[in-house]
Amino acid sequence: MTMRPPLTNLPILLEDVSFVVRDVTILDRIDLMLTPGAPTVVIGPNGAGKTTLLRLAMGLIRPTSGRVTWGGRTDAPADRRAIVFQRPVMLRRSAEANLRYALAAADVPSTEHESRVRELLALVGLASLGGRPARKLSGGEQQRLALARALAKDPQVLFLDEPTASLDPAATQSVEDLIRDVAARGIKVVMSTHDLGEARRLAGDVVLMHRGRIVETNNATAFFSNPKTSEASRFVTGQLLV
């Protein structure tokens, strides 16, 4: 492992954050604190603003108003935050080469690349597929490779945007197992999903979003057993939230 400055990205604090694109309000005055611990799962229907929330918390985009801080700083470098997009894009090279690229981008010395690549491939169960062109892998395999690539940064916090949205049950299970592994290593996972079951299986905390606002935030047990808002109780009981 390389020596890195002990930067801490947590807690991530969103204060009165709005995000507006051409007069359309995507996020409306969000307040949220993300702290170390079990995975935070952001749920809500499509278009609720989940993806935008993750991108803001990752630091890929800046809020129109309000502020985002990482460990108290607005300018914390993103080198220990990682994200897996809903549809990860693999570079046009082998699975191993994709990981080497990510390691190089994270300034990991090239002498460590081979061992890290093996380790990451083994972690996501792709040890035998390292030489294959990444874009020829199946959807589930690409999703796991994307996770490995994100982990190449050795992140403190990992954002996952709908990590299982387009996967079949078997692939979903392997990705969910992986997420539990990652969380167990002490990495803070912040993920979005519109799948209630997945939220129940993985969440430590739940954030319910609807129409650009945070409707309810609570720990998972309380959220599912005793929703405070009508939206949350409808969502939990499987009614449509439109």
Binding site: L60, A82, P88, L91, A106
Partner: peptide
């Protein structure tokens, strides 16, 4: 357009992005 998000997420700068795009 296809790679931008991933490259930004990996903190790849403009020069590195140009090299990657030319290569890929």
């Amino acid at each position: 357009l296809e790679y931008r998000d991933e490259l930004q997420a990996m903190n790849v700068g403009t020069l590195g992005s140009v090299v990657t795009l030319l290569w890929d």
